[in-house]
Amino acid sequence: MTRLDRTNEGRETTGGTTAASGYDLLRQIAVAVSAVLAVIGSFIGSGAAGGQRVQDAAGGALAADATLVAPGGGAFAIWSLIYFGLLAYAVWQFLPAQRNAERHRRLGWWVAASMLLNAAWILSVQADLLWLSVPIIVVLLVVLIIAFRRSLLLPPRSAVDATITDGTIGLYLGWVCVATVANVAAVLVAAGFDGWGIPPETWAVAMVAVAGLVGIALAVWDRGRIAPTLSLGWGLSWIAVARLTDEPASTVTGVAAIIAVVAVVLVTVAMRIVAVKRPQSSLRRHRG
């Protein structure tokens, strides 16, 4: 006879399998609504609704030529892919087959929070509250790290889930790592920070190095996941493009960004090779 008990989240488990509940439906709706709000926020941030574009708001503090670590304008095309992934995730997790999946129970609320924070970030910049954008994007980064960690702890059961869920969260996280560096630099420059006498290029190289080290740490942590490296490398590459082909020009910063991209990619490839070989060696030992 199967035993029926109720978990502390108000869900029922029967014979070790967890049944769907109203709490699950609430989570699914929250994710879907958050995705819609995020898309509306991006529409506003693009200037299509008649307001200022994010790049032009706050006195142009976030424009491609505002600081030495500002990515070139083409970098922001990645948002189209991220938003598409978020909408795909909202639909995927809303399917009845995913309602009682423990993976989405652990991820859903964090993904929803990230989308609301993203919309809040856009609104803060549009309202010329540039100083407020920094704590918002830092919290967004923390939320994405938590979501990413949970995706690692609860592996996907299908290629579709891996692509939609892990791919989207990974791309989102990698880009926000670069965006956080650019955002902090923009706020400091707008506030008149003089660098304590240290040359601007030195600060720029240091910030690019921080982004690169974060990318390396992610590659080691996630054993060579491709998505975070793609978006982080994309952002760093566009910093290189902006500094080598646009104003303010800085060959040193551009070269540093290229070196950071190469380092992150090499570590990602190395960790991927190690991750592939390790299960194979474990299997050989088991068979032996």
Rank of each mutant, 00 (worst) to 15 (best):
R3F: 10
R6Y: 05
T14H: 12
G16P: 09
G16K: 10
G22F: 01
D24Y: 02
L25K: 05
R27W: 01
I29N: 01
V31D: 03
A32R: 04
A35K: 02
V36K: 00
L37N: 01
I40G: 04
S46A: 15
A49P: 01
G51S: 13
G51L: 06
V54F: 08
V54L: 14
Q55W: 09
D56E: 15
A58P: 02
G59F: 12
D65A: 12
A66R: 08
A66D: 10
T67R: 06
A75D: 07
F76Q: 01
F84S: 11
L86P: 01
A88T: 11
Y89T: 15
L95E: 06
P96S: 09
N100H: 09
A101E: 02
R105S: 06
L107I: 13
L107H: 04
G108D: 05
V111E: 07
M115S: 05
I122K: 02
D128K: 04
S133Y: 01
S133R: 00
I136A: 03
I137Q: 03
V139P: 00
L141P: 01
L141W: 15
L144K: 06
A147R: 02
R150K: 13
L152C: 06
L154V: 08
P155G: 00
P156Y: 00
S158C: 09
V160R: 15
I164P: 00
D166F: 06
G167F: 09
G170Y: 07
G170M: 08
G174A: 08
A179W: 00
T180V: 08
A185N: 03
A186C: 02
A186S: 14
V189T: 13
V189G: 00
V189Y: 10
W196L: 14
I198V: 15
E201S: 14
T202W: 10
V208P: 11
L213D: 09
V214T: 09
D222C: 15
S231A: 13
G235Q: 02
S237G: 15
W238H: 06
A242E: 11
A242M: 05
R243P: 08
D246Q: 15
E247R: 13
P248F: 03
S250A: 11
V252G: 01
V255A: 08
V255E: 05
A260H: 09
A263H: 06
V267D: 02
V267N: 02
V269T: 12
V269K: 03
R272G: 00
I273K: 12
I273P: 02
V276F: 14
R278K: 15
P279H: 13
S281I: 14
R287Y: 04
